[in-house]
Nucleic acid binder design. Structure first.
Length: 507
DNA sequence: ACTTGTTACA
């Protein structure tokens, strides 16, 4: 079984075959060999069935009290998203060490229960689990914080890291850089990054991507060049970061150049993500036909997301004909979703084709297509406040709406004109095209002004993309009220300061 | 045994 162990990293199938051979010869596997073969069964290299067989055998051979072995079995279930099975194994373990708890955290993250991962950290730190968090626990929990945008929790983990002497570990620094970036604090990410003595390709990539998502395209490219000067070799992910930097900052020539260089100079062939970034880049600046041609020129077939990216570009530029064609492609892939029809609606409304808007809406209603309502959240003193369109549920709603009126007056003086013309939102079926409504991010921003001392940065997280009007509103607000406002979109950050935004998506 | 960086859409 030693051979199976050494094979388990790369040739999982052979590992399982060896196990089978062993059984055929009547040799009883010991816990260690069970552990190796289970590792061969994790997602990506085998089917669930093989692992299930092993698990059954483990139980039959009386290893149900071997917690190390069960930890591996649990991880196997977790990797196949069999959440309940994984939890069952965890519950049945007689003894749980830090690693078992780590696997539980990893299982929560993999299965979309990210918030619960933080709860587990709480339990571990407070001693309720009987095991203390270690460096891997921190790594996993930082990942959870990144996903949730939970800055305060992330800082708490950082303190834990420092207090327990993990501060020098490179992978933890890398995870912290990502956490800060994804919580909207590139500045802090950069500070940490510059303080690191040994930066590897992961550190650089995290920093480049962080700068990219905040709209600091030039700085991201500078970082990339600096990385090359330091002799660190870029990989696929690095180029994903670099190309996304170009797309978020509208750097078309640079984008083409890097896209070209990556294979010619670095021997890295563009994958679907790289093409996705290029389509986004070209689409955003209005080179829609080039973007379309690039998709058609690929040697692999485009995925739904790729088409969706192009559809988003059609919305920005009001390109009806191409938009309709893209929808066809999505339908062909049987991948069209509610959000796609909302984009199509916005394309029609942006060119004033109200007949089509009504037609599509009616059709959506008939088909019972449910759209996702826009929702914004804001964290004040560790408490998360949630807002939806025209929200009336917040306990301080009266103050919030009064504040909105007041802000509206102030911004009007400064020259803000509400844009009520074209944008439609996923705010529910009954929304009318020309109604002036308070989108969730406006409510959140007003609450931010209300609930935090002057000068405090206002951080808003939104589940969908911000509309042009709210974007203008935030710009003006940042100038008139002298506040830094950071809105975390679906996929990037808008940093508003002194009446400007770091992005160039909206004009 | 568990483990760092990844793009695009609403």
């Amino acid at each position: 079984m030693i051979r199976a162990y050494s094979l388990s990293e790369t040739f999982s199938e052979e590992g399982f075959n060896l196990y089978r051979e062993m059984r055929r010869k009547g040799i009883t596997p010991d816990p260690l060999s069970f552990s190796f073969v289970t590792k061969c069964c994790v997602k990506g290299s085998s089917s669930v069935l093989e692992g299930l067989q092993v698990h059954a055998r483990v139980l039959r051979d009386g290893h149900r009290s071997d917690s190390r072995l069960l930890t591996t079995v649990m991880d196997f279930y977790s990797s196949f998203k069999r959440f309940d099975d994984a939890c069952k194994v965890f519950d049945e373990m007689s003894h749980r060490d830090t690693i078992a708890w780590n696997v539980l955290i990893s299982c929560y993250i993999r299965n979309g229960r990210t918030g619960d991962a933080l709860v587990v950290f709480d339990m571990m730190e407070s001693g309720h689990s009987g095991s203390q968090p270690d460096d891997v626990t921190c790594l996993l929990v930082l990942q959870a914080c990144s996903n949730l945008g939970a800055l305060e929790f992330g800082e708490r983990v950082r303190r834990y890291i420092q207090e327990h002497g993990y501060g020098h570990l490179r992978n933890l620094c890398n995870a912290l850089i990502a956490m800060y970036s994804r919580c909207g604090c590139v500045g802090k990410a950069y500070q940490l990054f510059t303080g690191m003595p040994n930066r590897d390709v992961v550190s650089w990539t995290a920093m480049i991507s962080g700068l990219a998502s905040h709209g600091h395209g030039r700085e991201a490219i500078d970082a990339f060049r600096e990385m090359l000067r330091m002799g660190v070799a870029p990989d696929e992910q690095t180029f994903t970061g670099v190309l996304s930097a170009c797309s978020h900052s509208g750097l078309v020539d640079e984008g083409w150049m890097f896209f070209d260089h990556m294979s010619k100079e670095f021997g890295i062939l563009p994958n679907i993500h790289h093409f996705g970034c290029m389509v986004d880049l070209l689409g955003r600046v209005g080179l829609l036909d080039q973007a379309y041609q690039l998709i058609l020129s690929m040697s692999f077939s485009p995925d739904p997301t790729m088409w969706r990216t192009l559809l988003g570009a059609c919305r920005i530029h009001g390109h009806v004909a191409l938009g309709e064609r893209v929808i066809e492609h999505l339908i062909e892939l049987k991948a069209q979703e509610a959000g796609d029809y909302v984009l199509l609606l916005n394309i029609y409304s942006s060119v004033g084709n109200w007949e089509k808007v009504i037609e599509v809406r009616k059709w959506m209603k008939e088909k019972g297509i449910q759209t996702t309502p826009g929702c914004s959240t804001m964290e004040v003193k560790g408490e998360v406040h949630e807002f939806v369109v025209d929200d009336l549920s917040h306990p301080r709603k009266k103050e919030i709406y009064e504040m909105l009126d007041e802000i509206g007056k102030q911004l009007k003086i400064a020259g803000y004109v509400a844009e009520v013309t074209s944008e439609l939102h996923n705010s529910g079926a009954e929304e009318k095209a020309n109604r002036l409504s308070y989108h969730s991010e406006k409510l959140a921003m007003a609450f931010g002004i209300l609930a935090t001392p002057p000068g405090t940065t206002i951080r808003v997280a939104k589940n969908l993309r911000t509309c042009v009007d709210c974007h203008n509103f935030a710009k003006m607000l940042s100038g008139v009220y002298n506040r830094e406002i950071i809105i975390r979109d679906r996929n990037r950050f808008h940093c508003f300061r002194e009446g400007q935004c770091s992005c160039n998506d909206y004009w």
